[in-house]
Design a protein around this nucleic acid. Structure first.
Lengths: 249, 249
DNA sequence: TAGTGGTCTAGACCACCGG
DNA sequence: CGGTGGTCTAGACCACTAG
């Protein structure tokens, strides 16, 4: 890791200084972002990474522990350390916060309505950190919970990062897994803001409810491993038979 | 920490086994819960705790690190380790997720409407894990953001845990800080579930909006350090000029 | 200057897993 | 059985804070 001594290369007070374990973490995150290790793949053991980078096992462990806490890795005693997958159970736990009245989380089914490309609107430019003139893919779909149409959803994606997505015969229900497996883009997190609003006529029709019914509007920007916006998603939820869960910890 | 060796007393495979650093953590959490150390107070140094308990500094550090991640402690290099306070900035960051249109978080003002005691309803019994026949304190208030009435809020507290609260001349705006300083009860976390609903007549009047306006309904159960329910809170928010923020990480 | 937390290292034993 | 992650220890140097 260091060319000189086992201590830090740079003086610790200087700006831009990072502890050794953070440098190790950055390197490992970069390798995952660049698909040097694929989702589901096993990483070298702590000792091997430590030897490769010329640091101690404890330093590598601290980097791996942080990445595990951020759900980038999954560690299993006796087996090894693996790059996390966007499987349904992870999505359900980390990204899909809508739970039906039963209290049992379920992955929603999707009915695709539209897929199209367009010049990014000013709002899309802002949310996705694009340049004016960039294009986006717009997707509209209705998602059902236990067979009941519940969410009318609109997505915007930077066209540049998802070549070929529009022409694709079938756009999968689990988008984040698709982003990872077909485009090498890992959704690492995001920010949501929620409001209540009256159902517009079009969405009310799609959900089979009266116009003006109160809906939960969820506005999400999803971020990749580098913290860059990847997806802007706007979901209108009929919460008469489900609710949005949020943990305070 | 251990009577016998430096290794574990109990075989690691046995049920109920806890790693040493978790045992240390439990002990320290219990001391905070029992106010052996008060909020804002400084803890002994890592070395002192390690010596007292007969474990290594690294083991104590791991316990303290977890408690810091859970916002129970605040550590400051060169100063020491402190029991976290429920000051406004912490509440704002951890518990109050409503942000005005400006994007700048502010602590809401409160207008108290009612404080009364009553026999717990079946729903209150369930939410607060009470026994049938127990009593609760019910509080109703309206909270304003930047001077605009925005939230109509209803709270239920176990009467047993808050003696004297009802007769109190002035119930403070920052309740969690009050719970900590006057009752020794630390709110460590909670769970919220959100829905959209039409404003009932009474709440609409309180918020100065038309009846039936879509509101964001937030249903919260707050938990103490032992994970026991302390407060059931039901908030109806007019989200036309604010929104609820939720981070996905 | 003394004491604190922050980082880094080295080595040990353990439980768990697969072959 | 050998290799993995999980835990625990001991000791070192550093940066930051207070007096």
């Amino acid at each position: 890791m260091n060319e000189k001594t086992n201590s830090q290369d740079e003086a610790r007070g200087t700006p831009g200084f990072l502890p050794l374990y953070r440098q190790v973490k950055s390197l490992l995150v970069r390798r995952i972002a660049e698909r040097f290790w694929q989702p589901g793949e096993i990483l070298p053991s702590e000792m091997q990474i430590a030897a490769e980078l010329g640091v101690s096992q404890g330093t590598v462990r601290k980097a791996l522990d942080e990445m595990t806490a951020e759900r980038l890795l999954v560690r299993r005693q006796g087996r090894g350390t693996f790059v996390a997958r966007h499987d349904e159970s992870r999505i359900l736990f980390q990204f899909f916060k809508i739970v039906p009245e039963t209290g049992i989380p379920v992955f929603p089914e999707s009915h695709l309505r539209r897929v199209e490309t367009a010049l990014a609107s000013p709002e899309e430019v802002a949310r996705l950190a694009l340049r004016p003139g960039d294009s986006v893919i717009r997707i509209a779909r209705v998602r059902s919970l236990n067979g009941r149409p519940t969410i009318s959803e609109y997505l915007a994606l930077p066209l540049e990062r998802f070549p070929g997505l529009v022409g694709q015969a079938d756009i999968p229900n689990n988008l984040y897994d698709h982003f990872a497996s077909d485009y090498g883009i890992t959704i690492a997190g995001g920010d949501e803001s929620l409001r209540a609003m009256a159902a517009p006529a079009e969405d009310a029709a799609l959900l089979g409810i009266p116009e003006g019914t109160p809906l939960l509007a969820i506005d999400r920007v999803a971020l990749d491993l580098d913290g860059k916006p990847v997806e802007w998603r706007y979901s209108l939820c009929d919460t008469r038979h489900c609710h949005y869960v949020s943990g305070l910890r």
